[in-house]
Amino acid sequence: MQETINATQSLVTLDVALPGIIWGGIITINMWAKSIGTGVIIVGAYLLFRHKKEQMPNYRWLIPLIAFIALNVFLLFTLIDLHQPYRMINIFLHPHFTSAITVGAWIASLFTLLVSVMLIIGLASGFPDVLRHNGVAKKLRGSESLYDKLSPIVLFLAFPVTLYTAIIMAESSARELWQAPTELTQMFLAALIAGAATLLLFSAKWSDAVKKDITLVLIFAVTFSFLIYMGEYFFSFKSSEAEATLAYIHLGGTYSIQFWVAMILGYILPFFLGILSIKENTKSVAKVAAVSALIGLYLAKDVWLKIPQLLPLS
């Protein structure tokens, strides 16, 4: 930081203006929607491991449907953030595989494709009366085994799809805050938070035991994610750049209020509301926790994305 004694004081007196925030709200929505899309797959798989599928009657189409919508929002926002959107195709025609952007785009596209196939099969089987005599629909209804074969592949892909953004951030050598190893864990926990919160909102038909389990995942994820944020905020060893970046969320910093609102809405409130909902068995409280977590997660991601871009780089 700048020197504070007269003898070494130095001040920029003529320079160009700073470029400002380049990756803004569009990228925040991109990350947030991706967390939902991959999170419902990961949390859904965990629920299937723990509970009988009869306890989650619409599971086979609900999970791919939420994932499909969220992934398409994610892909749309990836596209509209490009300054040359029509050239997106170059990622496939001229791929550069040292770039996590390329690898991520390839895996995410494959992932979305497989989720779409699962969604079509899931919907055809979930609503047998729709297009009852249609040949294609009949064939799809008979493709349950394909659905089952795709499920583990999609689950496997959900991990790199959710984590590759952390690798993009690690490759962003100009933003040291994003290069912290904790970013990978935070990205995974964000998927758990987003997945659990979204499922809490759409699992009306699922058994209480399942809902309780989802709430526990939410509580677990917000707790660990919050602890990591606090560790980075207060304690961890940081480079001087990361330290200077965090000044924007320290008291009086430009993003201090948004950061603490995010911590309260996304992490502290869902933790207590989640516990309350389990203790009192009140589903509406769990839903409030879910909405709060989704809003807080968005705000936290937004702050973390923007603050390193405020620093002068040269």
Partner: peptide
């Protein structure tokens, strides 16, 4: 060829 993703702007430590 550039698609305008601004990844390079995030990566260049010198803001060049």
């Amino acid at each position: 060829r550039c698609i305008g993703c601004a990844g390079c702007m995030m990566a260049c430590p010198y803001g060049a």
